[in-house]
Write a protein that binds this DNA or RNA. Structure first.
Lengths: 234, 234
DNA sequence: ATTTCTATAATTTTCGAAAATCAATAGAAA
DNA sequence: TTTCTATTGATTTTCGAAAATTATAGAAAT
């Protein structure tokens, strides 16, 4: 029994490649690993404490999701960020999210509705910023739970898979822009309006509101000059 | 210099994992590797003539695209097929293809139009079936080229990536259903109507026609009782 | 000074063996 | 006869070293 360095509790009873994939993904999405950064195996072996095989597999998987880039015999890099990529991401998110919500509206049952009402309620009970001005992790969790609840009835594995991948990319941009929450934006009002439209099965309004919601986040990120320093180009 | 068994000419100057990925993908999409088939490393090493590392990486990449399934410590399998999966695939294809075409209609220039006209012309010059009743590879190539030409101006890397992945899945179902071409269907008429609508920038008609086109293919596949034997369940 | 070539160093890619895990079977106990 | 446990066998997963490739630095030539 060599298996020991299980790091995060939940990585128990998982393959090494599985847990190193999770950790790499989180580090990239959290911005710990900077956009464009070179990923050398010697360093990765050091910092993640695993051998080549699970590392290469995890990176290959991340490359398929476009969170990292693989260049022939020249190694892996964290995917760069750019304005045009952010615009492309917004476009796809608007289409995929709205599609998932519209299908959920068509197919959702009472239990689906209840989960949304519960999620928006829980979200409203929590401030997005802590006393120190940082984003509250618990708020982030409830925020994700709320958005997930909206699409939970869409009944399409592929739609949910693509949505998940796009959300990862969006989260990365969002977290690279530190103060994305503190821009005087009324999150709760937006979320409530969205929740109301969905629960009322108002497809037209839900479609309009989710697209607006996603677009506003991107506007804030685009305006963040700090992000230039993270390597945002065209 | 150990590199030698480059199989298909184009795999030169490519990494081993890259070419074994290409070969595995083709074998799966072509139905050579049956749905649900177990992929044991001993056998794969034998038949593809490479070591474990490039094989595992290639399979990991294919797993991310859902062409193969990875189960913890229980190996890789070719992704199974099912009616519900085929329906899910159709749903996503209709959305993604129509979106790509509509964006191309908005953004395409004269050169884009010309390429479509050229592609539909080339497609019309070729019979889909050979004298022996098989699908003509040259027709398949022109068919793909035509459909690609329709979306060539959509200007969205993510949209094109997802479209490519969905097309791979669709091609697999289509090829598992041997006589998908020979069902008395008038391909050329459908393609011409689609081409005309797109070149005329008639978004409404193009949207309707592409969705119909995709749905008809699925109808034929669903009706193919041969496919039951390939493992099509719910 | 600039370029080109060669030798060296750094890094990725691949292989083969060791370790870990899962499936199957046989044997013991109920 | 059935159920449970231990052992064997088959297979995946992981490691560490070898091979191949790319990058770097210095020397020679223009």
């Amino acid at each position: 029994m060599t298996m020991a360095q299980g790091a995060t509790a939940d990585s128990a009873s998982k393959t090494l490649m599985g847990s190193v994939y999770d950790r790499l993904r989180r580090d990239i999405v959290d911005g710990e690993l900077r956009p464009g950064a070179r990923l050398r195996f010697d360093e990765l072996k050091e910092s993640y404490g695993v051998g080549l095989s699970p590392l290469r597999e995890a990176l290959t998987r991340l490359a398929a999701e476009k969170l990292v880039i693989l260049e022939q015999n020249r190694g892996f890099h964290v995917a760069p960020i750019s304005r045009s990529d952010l615009n492309d991401l917004l476009l796809m998110r608007q289409e995929i999210e709205s599609l998932a919500i519209l299908r959920s509206i068509e197919r959702g049952d009472d239990q689906w509705e209840s989960a949304i009402v519960a999620a928006i309620h829980a979200l409203g009970k929590r401030q997005s910023l802590t006393a120190e001005g940082h984003i509250d992790p618990e708020w982030e969790l409830r925020h994700r739970t709320f958005h997930d609840s909206l699409v939970a009835a869409c009944d399409s594995p592929r739609l949910l898979l693509y949505r998940q991948q796009l959300t990862d990319h969006a989260d990365r941009y969002r977290r690279l822009s530190h103060h994305y929450v503190s821009s005087g934006r009324d999150h709760l009002a937006e979320h409530c309006a969205l929740s109301d439209a969905v629960v009322a099965r108002d497809a037209e309004a839900a479609n309009r509101l989710i697209r607006q919601h996603l677009a506003r986040t991107v506007e804030i990120i685009q305006a963040d000059e700090d992000l230039q320093k993270s390597g945002l180009e065209d």
